[in-house]
C-alpha cells in the first residue's frame, strides 16, 4: 500500500528521467550513425582521412621541376645568397603552372610584402640572418629596385 502510494506520488519524476534517457539514447543512435567507419583504427582519427588527404591535388611542384624549364633564373639564384630559398617559397605553389605553363601563367610576386616577410628586423631572429628595418632601409622604394630577387647581392 505504502509503496503503491509512493509510486503514484513520485510517478511524475519518472518523466524527466525518461526524457533524459531518451535524449541519451538518441545521442547514442546518432553517434553510432555518424561516426566514420573504423574510427580509431590507427589513432584518434578517421582512417579514411589518409586517402582523402592523399587524393587532394598537389599544389607544389618542387623546385627541381622549375629548374628544368627556368634555367636562367635557376643559375642566377644559385650564384647568390638565395641559393637555398626554394622557388615556390617566393612564387607560391605553382604545380598547375608546371603542368601547363602557357595556360597558367603565374603572377609575379608582390615584392612590397614578399621580402619583408623574411627580412623584417625582429629581435627573435638569429643575429647572423640578414634583416633590415624595412621602413628605414628602403624608405618606401620597392626592394627590387636595388636588389635583384634571384640574387639579392647588389
Amino acid at each position: 500500500m505504502v509503496l503503491r502510494r509512493f509510486l503514484r506520488d513520485s510517478g511524475h519524476l519518472v518523466r524527466p528521467a525518461i526524457v533524459l534517457l531518451a535524449a541519451m539514447g538518441l545521442f547514442l543512435v546518432v553517434r553510432s550513425a555518424v561516426i566514420p567507419k573504423a574510427f580509431g583504427q590507427y589513432g584518434h582519427y578517421r582512417p579514411g582521412a589518409l586517402d582523402a588527404i592523399r587524393a587532394r591535388p598537389i599544389s607544389f611542384a618542387g623546385q627541381d621541376t622549375c629548374v628544368a624549364c627556368h634555367d636562367e633564373q635557376a643559375k642566377v639564384r644559385a650564384a647568390g645568397k638565395h641559393a637555398h630559398v626554394a622557388c615556390e617559397a617566393c612564387h607560391g605553389p605553382l604545380a598547375k603552372h608546371a603542368d601547363d605553363p602557357t595556360a597558367n601563367v603565374p603572377k609575379r610576386p608582390e615584392v612590397a610584402n614578399l621580402c619583408r616577410r623574411c627580412h623584417e628586423k625582429d629581435a627573435a631572429k638569429p643575429q647572423g640572418f640578414p634583416q633590415v628595418a624595412t621602413v628605414e632601409h628602403s624608405a618606401g622604394m620597392a626592394c627590387n629596385s636595388c636588389h635583384q630577387p634571384h640574387n639579392p647581392h647588389l
Binding site: R8, D9, S10, G11, H12
Partner: peptide, 11 residues
C-alpha cells in the same frame, strides 16, 4: 509539464 499534473501534497 511532461504530461504529469500531479500536484498532490505528497507529490
Amino acid at each position: 509539464t511532461l504530461g504529469s499534473e500531479n500536484l498532490s501534497p505528497a507529490a
